[in-house]
């Protein structure tokens, strides 16, 4: 009977596949990325290496010596409380990340993780960050999402374009998004200033583009302002998915239409906006195998790191970049995703 290798599906469920099946899925995953992103394929050597990583023995695998990378976070210091239900303050969480978990950096973030909410409590949030900065050695970020959806009625000041568009009220829908960008940039830059004033090292614009191209534009414009007004505060822009969803479709940054951009083009705009780090994201498809997902991910990510002038940190969290979409992550495929991202995808951090 032909040997079958243990791996998982994108939702984390266990599956056994033959060499032929794994190689076929790697090929198909790569082809999907090539088709969508118009990027180059992996070389034969890289494809073979990816197969070796998927099938190598051991529960947890690690990178080759010398290939260790650093890590940044999104809402990291809050997760011990929110995800594990352990009521620990965020400054203590940051110390736990530094002295127990060996983290290279972490961000302080509010559990209602968006800049619109944070604006009203920005100075209080800054106080927590200030306390944490006194007690930690590693770089600390403040982090949240631009989350343009929060600016629509009934939660915010502008009309909801998700309602207007299906009604055919296109002009109003586009205007609503443009108005939301202005509100978001104001809120984000206000929060950034409070964090810069207490000594933050970094500022995380997480899941940028979650509400579409206007959301991504808000992150770029805010980054541009922050790096100009508070150059001591360094910005990381993390993406929301492998392409920027075109909810508007005509918004441009640096003469480039933002909608539809894949990571290798997203990173160029992020660089132009003045960010220090780009957090690249490729979504995990729950219904496809890990070999399919990771091949697709690495094809996109390698195309991104090939052209990036700034460090690229691949988001290695639940449901993205080959990591399964499940709350309790299996270390077997998660560690394989990390190894592939670093050794073949050439990322500068996770």
């Amino acid at each position: 009977m032909e040997k079958k290798y243990f791996t998982r599906m994108g939702d984390g469920s266990m599956v056994y596949m033959t060499e032929e099946e794994i190689k076929a899925d790697i090929q198909l995953g790569m082809e999907d990325a090539i088709l969508r992103g118009k990027v180059d394929p992996l070389t034969e050597e890289e494809t073979q290496k990816l197969y070796d990583i998927v099938t190598m023995s051991g529960i947890i695998v690690g990178v080759e010596p010398g290939m260790q990378v650093v890590s940044s976070n999104d809402s990291g210091s809050d997760k011990i409380s929110t995800k594990c239900g352990i009521p620990v303050t965020r400054d203590v969480n940051a110390m736990i990340h530094e002295r127990v978990l060996g983290a290279d950096s972490v961000d302080i973030g509010n559990s209602d993780y968006n800049y619109k909410t944070v604006k009203g409590i920005a100075k209080r949030e800054a106080t927590i960050l200030k306390q944490a900065l006194r007690n930690t050695t590693m770089p600390l970020f403040y982090g949240a999402m631009p989350n343009l959806g929060f600016y629509t009625k009934p939660d915010g000041p502008v009309e909801n374009w998700a309602v207007l568009l299906p009604e055919g009220r296109i002009k109003e829908a586009l205007q609503a998004q443009e108005d939301a960008v202005v509100h978001a940039v104001n809120d984000i830059t206000y929060v950034a200033k409070q964090m810069a004033d207490v000594g933050a090292d970094g500022f995380q614009l997480d899941t940028s583009g979650a509400a579409g191209d206007a959301d991504f534009l808000a992150a770029l414009l805010a980054c541009e302002k922050i790096t100009k007004n508070n150059p001591e505060l360094k910005v990381e822009i993390g993406a929301a998915g492998e392409f920027v969803l075109g909810m508007h479709g005509k918004l441009k940054y640096d003469d480039q239409i933002i909608a539809g951009l894949y990571p290798h083009k997203q990173v160029k705009l992020v660089e132009k906006a003045g960010a220090s780090i780009f957090g690249a994201v490729v979504n995990t498809n729950c219904n496809m195998s890990f070999p399919w997902n990771i091949a697709r991910v690495i094809t996109f990510i390698k195309a991104c790191t090939d052209v990036a002038q700034i460090p690229v940190h691949a988001n290695a969290g639940m449901g993205v970049n080959g990591i399964p979409m499940c709350e309790n992550l299996p270390s077997d495929v998660s560690s394989r995703a990390d190894k592939a991202l670093i050794e073949i995808g050439k990322v500068d951090g996770l």
């Binding site: 088709l35 969508r36 568009l165 299906p166 055919g168 296109i170 829908a173 586009l174 579409g212 191209d213 392409f243 920027v244 969803l245 075109g246 909810m247 508007h248 479709g249 005509k250 909608a259 539809g260 951009l261 894949y262």
Partner: peptide
């Protein structure tokens, strides 16, 4: 095409009309 990021929602809506 929308699923691939090649066209955007407003264009889809125009076509819908």
């Amino acid at each position: 095409q929308f699923g691939m990021g090649e066209i955007f929602l407003p264009e889809l809506i125009f076509a819908t009309e």
